[in-house]
Deep mutational scan, measured.
Amino acid sequence: TEYKLVVVGAGGVGKSALTIQLIQNHFVDEYDPTIEDSYRKQVVIDGETCLLDILDTAGQEEYSAMRDQYMRTGEGFLCVFAINNTKSFEDIHQYREQIKRVKDSDDVPMVLVGNKCDLAARTVESRQAQDLARSYGIPYIETSAKTRQGVEDAFYTLVREIRQH
């Protein structure tokens, strides 16, 4: 089974770092803004072998026109913010609204991801993020692309959301 996953969120929150940590098991430290990259990885989730087709997208506003296209083809979405960047957390709402509009559905598989949880300088409390996820009816997972904490959990949870859909 193949799953088309799309990673969305503001610029600099760590979308590529999360994806590369999942696929290649290493942490990319330097920031190089993405336009669009796709990665494929075969994994076993709950005993089922599946192929993850992951689209890593641009957070930069100037590429926002490309969003409709990949939102149409994606089956599930990782909505990523950084726990030390309140603005990126506030941006999640717009991504969710755009996904709902493009998919013409209120019920699209999504996982809210709070990345950079290895950093002490948190400005978005776990509780705020949990409340937001609960209001959307989606899971919330904290990750660190640096330490790998929660990385597999985030992507695998999204696959489970798609399966249950």
Rank of each mutant, 00 (worst) to 15 (best):
T1K: 07
T1E: 02
V6E: 04
V7K: 04
V7G: 05
A10D: 03
G11S: 15
V13C: 12
V13Y: 00
G14Q: 00
K15F: 00
L18M: 08
T19P: 06
Q24H: 08
Q24W: 04
N25A: 03
F27T: 06
Y31C: 04
D32P: 02
P33C: 07
P33L: 01
D37M: 00
D37L: 00
Y39H: 10
Y39N: 01
K41A: 13
K41I: 05
V43I: 08
I45G: 08
D46L: 12
E48S: 06
T49K: 06
T49R: 08
D53P: 05
D53I: 09
I54R: 03
I54D: 00
L55S: 12
T57L: 14
T57W: 10
A58V: 04
Q60H: 15
Q60L: 15
E61N: 11
E62I: 02
Y63W: 15
Y63D: 15
M66H: 11
D68L: 06
Y70C: 09
R72I: 01
T73N: 06
T73K: 04
T73S: 08
G74W: 01
G74F: 06
V80H: 04
F81E: 02
F81W: 11
F81H: 02
A82V: 12
A82N: 14
I83K: 02
N84D: 09
N85R: 03
N85A: 04
T86E: 12
T86G: 04
K87P: 09
H93P: 08
H93K: 11
H93T: 09
Q94Y: 04
Q98T: 07
I99F: 09
K100I: 01
R101S: 06
S105D: 10
S105H: 07
D106L: 05
P109F: 05
P109H: 08
P109N: 04
M110F: 03
V113D: 01
V113P: 10
N115R: 08
C117L: 06
D118P: 08
D118F: 11
A120M: 11
T123S: 07
T123F: 05
T123V: 09
Q130V: 11
D131A: 12
D131Y: 09
L132N: 13
R134W: 10
R134S: 11
Y136R: 08
I138N: 05
P139A: 10
Y140K: 03
T143M: 15
S144F: 14
S144Y: 14
K146C: 14
T147I: 12
T147Y: 13
G150P: 14
G150F: 14
E152K: 10
E152V: 10
D153F: 13
L158M: 08
R160L: 09
R163S: 08
H165F: 13
H165G: 12
H165R: 13
